[in-house]
Amino acid sequence: MSHTQMMKGILDGCLLGIIKGKETYGYEMAERLSNYGFSAVSEGTIYPILMRMQREGLVTSVRKESTAGPKRKYYSLTIKGEQALEDFLIRWKQLEENVNAVITQEIKK
């Protein structure tokens, strides 16, 4: 499995998490992801995801003036988005447990 395939879905969840923390814009999200160690992901990857999440009603956006540079588009979570984040956390926890179980019981045996 390639890195990108594995990242699909996981990035969605991480973005929802970052947006939940505080209303934020694309560049800042990319910076935060990279600080958390997602440096192999090219920054622009977030935009198609944000577009899809907005279409699905998980996030809303508003354009705001910036002190230096062009206007920025700030995203925040909707109630549906909060729910999607909850679902992600449950699925991730399950997946993490399963993968860890395989690692400890099968691979390191």
């Binding site: 694309g26 560049y27 622009g44 935009y47 577009m51 910036s66 206007k71 588009k73």
Partner: peptide, 11 residues
């Protein structure tokens, strides 16, 4: 989308 990307690339 192009304006959003422009803002990103600018920064």
């Amino acid at each position: 989308i192009t304006e959003e990307l422009e803002a990103h690339i600018y920064e």
